[in-house]
Design a protein around this nucleic acid. Structure first.
Length: 423
RNA sequence: GGAGAGGUGUCCGAGUGGUCGAAGGAGCACGCCUGGAAAGUGUGUAUACCUCAAAAGGGUAUCCAGGGUUCGAAUCCCUGUCUCUCCGCCA
């Protein structure tokens, strides 16, 4: 959430930068500013009214003590009017505050100044590419066929038990999953991230904190009986660990890593994009999250990118890094880099990681702050990235490493799987 | 799920319906003391919003949350929520 004071003082800049995200904020901002003026007016009047009745109450108390009943009673009639007025004003204030807040929640984060203009994924900029795209033998097939051939991921069984998008991992498939999770976690811990195991369901306040709500309501699974949401990513519980927290400036950067299953309704997805492991309702992901001092958040974003790149290198996967254009960025992000690995049998790039700096957008929603050197309260910056999401990594590992005699497991990973071929 | 007890500042902890943003302690910060440290000692130590060009200052709110009673609520009443204890159920 953007800060109202910032919008008030930098109205034109806010509108211009939001335009990079293809968000026409002109009308909305005017509306917010109008309510802001009104809100402050109510606040002022209410404060004055309450100040008056506070001082009258004090006087009445003193008169009672002095035994001056009658004089006290006279003042009492005065306070009755003030009370009515205070009630009206506080209702009006609460209403305008709520309205303003609702509107503010609908404004996306400002893109950082280096975000390229653009409307769709076509306009993203490839900033880096490395690794060789392997030459496959003639009968090479996409991963869903490999999954069936080696009986490692069973989509049919998942359909039976739950529904589409909930695969069952079997045998070496299940072991490969477990190996990848440990591989990713170990690498993150070695890089200084503290391992956390969070709840897989969160309450509404947490959804609001990281920005899934109200923007992506409908993309999360919801448990109406208890009012909980299944997490779409560990980012939600992990970042919300610090909701309403004043962290110690000396502790920056705070680095956490969590493995979790992720649940996404993926309403509106269809076609070849959802084939096999390409898009699932339940999947596994290791997520890294950092809380940072505003001065160093972009430096840390680079560090996170390097970490992710290092993982892909160890897995010997060809990958590229995209800087997302304004139109392809998420609601909450200020700058995002996507990592894509090449899936040779599908002949397409698959997104396996998204690394973002949210600046103070999430921390303002969460009231995640720190006291700076001058003793002033400041919002921290939050960052996160996938390191990594499993399904498409598995897809490309299977496809890129398939041979006539089985699927080769990269060396770094074989230490974890305890097998180097899937046969 | 049933019964009971309780939620006060960074922490511990006091609190009678008015003078309580809140005693006292610990912690922390800065100073004095010391060769240095400990001890001792002095001062300070919440957040949000409004007001003010800014700072200083001032106002309002906040003692789990939301309502209510009252001229006045940390204190009384109601609801919710969380924690603890006991019982039940259970991986």
């Amino acid at each position: 959430m953007l800060q109202i004071a910032f919008i008030r003082e930098n109205t034109q800049e806010v509108i211009e930068r939001l335009a990079v995200k293809n968000f026409d904020a002109r009308e909305r901002i005017q509306e917010i500013l109008a309510i802001d003026t009104l809100r402050r007016e109510y606040q002022k009047n209410l404060d004055e009214t309450l100040a008056e009745s506070n001082s009258l109450a004090k006087e009445i108390g003193n008169l009672f003590k002095a035994g001056k009943q009658q004089e006290a009673d006279v003042l009492k009639t005065k306070t009755a009017d003030l009370k009515v007025r205070a009630k009206e004003l506080s209702d009006a204030l609460a209403e305008s505050e709520q309205k303003q807040n609702e509107l503010l929640l609908t404004i996306p984060n400002l893109p950082s100044r280096e975000v390229p203009k653009g409307k769709t994924a076509e306009d993203n900029i490839t900033v880096h590419q490395e690794g060789e795209i392997p030459q496959l033998y003639a009968e090479a097939v996409p991963h869903w066929d490999l999954c069936a051939k080696y009986d490692i991921v069973d989509f049919e069984l998942g359909n039976k038990i739950t529904g589409a998008g909930f695969p069952v991992y079997k045998g070496m498939g299940a072991r490969l999953q477990r190996a990848l999770i440990n591989f990713f976690l170990d690498n993150a811990v070695a890089a200084g991230y503290k391992e956390i195991q969070p709840p897989l369901m969160v309450n509404e306040a947490s959804g609001l904190g990281t920005g899934q709500l109200p923007d992506k309501d409908g993309q999360m699974y919801y448990m109406p009986l208890d009012g909980y949401y299944m997490i779409p990513t560990a980012e939600v519980p992990i970042t919300n660990l610090y909701r309403d927290v004043i962290v110690n400036e000396k502790d920056f950067p705070i680095k956490n890593v969590a493995y979790s299953q992720c649940f996404r309704r993926e309403a509106g997805s269809y076609g070849k994009d959802v084939r096999g492991l390409n898009r699932l309702h339940q999947f596994d992901k290791v997520e890294i999250v950092q809380l940072a001092h505003p001065d160093s958040s972009y430096q840390l974003l680079e560090e996170m990118k390097n970490h992710v790149a290092g993982l892909l290198r160890k897995l010997e996967l060809p990958f590229r890094i995209l800087k997302l254009c304004g139109g392809d960025m998420s609601f909450t992000s200020a700058l995002t880099f996507d990592f894509e690995v090449y899936s040779t049998a599908q002949q397409r790039w698959l997104e396996v990681s998204s690394v973002s700096n949210f600046e103070s957008f999430q921390s303002n929603r969460m009231k995640l702050r720190f006291k700076d050197k001058d003793g002033k309260m400041q919002l921290a910056h939050t960052l996160n990235g996938s390191a990594l999401a499993l399904p498409r990594i598995v897809a490309s590992l299977l496809e890129n490493n398939q041979t006539e005699s089985g699927i080769r497991i990269p060396k770094a990973l074989a230490e974890y799987t305890k097998f180097d071929m899937i046969r």
